[in-house]
Simulated assay, not measured.
Amino acid sequence: MRVLLAGATGVVGRELVAQLRAAGHEVLALTRSPGRLTGVTPVVADLTDRDAVLAAVEGHEADAVVHQATAISGVPLFHRDLHATDALREHGTATLVEATRRMGARRFVTQSFFLGYGYHDHGPDPVTEDRPFAPPGRGPFEVHMRAMRHNERLALETPGIEGVALRYGMFYGPEPATRRLVELARRRLLPVFRPSGVIAPVHVHDAASAAVAALERGRGAYNIAGDEAVSFGAYVRALAAAVGAPEPYTVPSWPLRAAPYAYAMLVRTRIRLSTEKARRELGWSPAYPTLRDGIRRSCPG
């Protein structure tokens, strides 16, 4: 396929470029920085500028569009840290759907997120894709839920487009946020909060391989994560162990209430994701099924 990829220089995007090319696909990379990419055809525009994007794709044809653009560069602490990504999920997705039509493409794959199921305790059973997604949120959380809701509706409900939404777990691997956390763990500056939430991590390699599989075979929404949910405490300890750092300090979680978004994500949310649908329909499975597998390869001591 000839694929327009938005977010080609991002965490998942860089890995996805390599995997798309290895699978025989041709990549058009929507980017503001064409000099940072090789082996692709650059389409130079800022996704936040609708008119510039539509002008840039003029004259190009594609079979599919993949949206992996995000403005998150680390672990978000405050609601404002998500606002730029919220805009990409709403307005950026709308622009890419319009570009999809103008380029004659029929398939559209978008990056979605596991926290669209809600920032709360989901109980011990794995959450499947038929669970309500992005229900109305309270206060500032509704801004994020609305963006995730709108992103998926555009992908999955636009007439004439075969849409896929990949509901990724928390990314980790050879990427900036993980490297920053590793350095903090190395200096014993990354504590374990008590209590801590439970999340479903996904290695960036596996996130990209799911996108390739979804591009070729997907339709609808899919949870994409490793086989094992972990607490944030276990995640921090795994990082420290991988680099030979001392056992992290354990501290109470209540001071995190000063950063409401971080508290909701790191403490209040407990979620396990079922990936059975992705395995069954996409033929996808993670190369790094557990956090320990991925950390060993990504964070050598």
Rank of each mutant, 00 (worst) to 15 (best):
E175G: 12
V97W: 01
A264L: 14
A134S: 11
D206S: 07
G220W: 01
A245C: 14
A258L: 15
L184S: 12
A55V: 03
D206I: 09
P124H: 02
I72R: 01
H144S: 15
A287C: 12
F113A: 12
Q68M: 13
L54N: 12
A278D: 02
D51C: 02
R89D: 15
F171Y: 15
P176C: 08
A211V: 03
V143N: 02
E61N: 01
F232Y: 11
P201T: 11
L77R: 08
V212F: 07
R89F: 15
N223P: 00
P191C: 08
P76L: 01
A229L: 11
D121W: 02
R257K: 15
V12T: 12
G169Y: 01
L282D: 07
S209V: 11
S285F: 08
G139A: 15
G39E: 08
V251T: 13
T38G: 13
P135C: 11
A214C: 04
S209M: 05
G220P: 04
A23E: 13
N223R: 09
P246A: 07
L54K: 02
F114M: 14
F171P: 14
R280N: 04
R101P: 11
S285K: 11
F114Y: 15
G163T: 06
L28K: 03
V109H: 08
A62K: 07
R146W: 10
R80I: 03
N223C: 10
E142N: 13
L184R: 07
P174F: 09
V243F: 01
A278M: 14
A213L: 00
A278F: 00
V75S: 06
S285E: 11
S285V: 02
V57H: 06
A221K: 04
P300H: 06
L4S: 00
F114A: 15
A69H: 04
Q19P: 09
V251F: 04
R257W: 13
I224A: 00
P201I: 09
H205A: 11
V212E: 00
Y261I: 09
L5H: 01
V43H: 04
F141E: 14
L4G: 10
T269N: 00
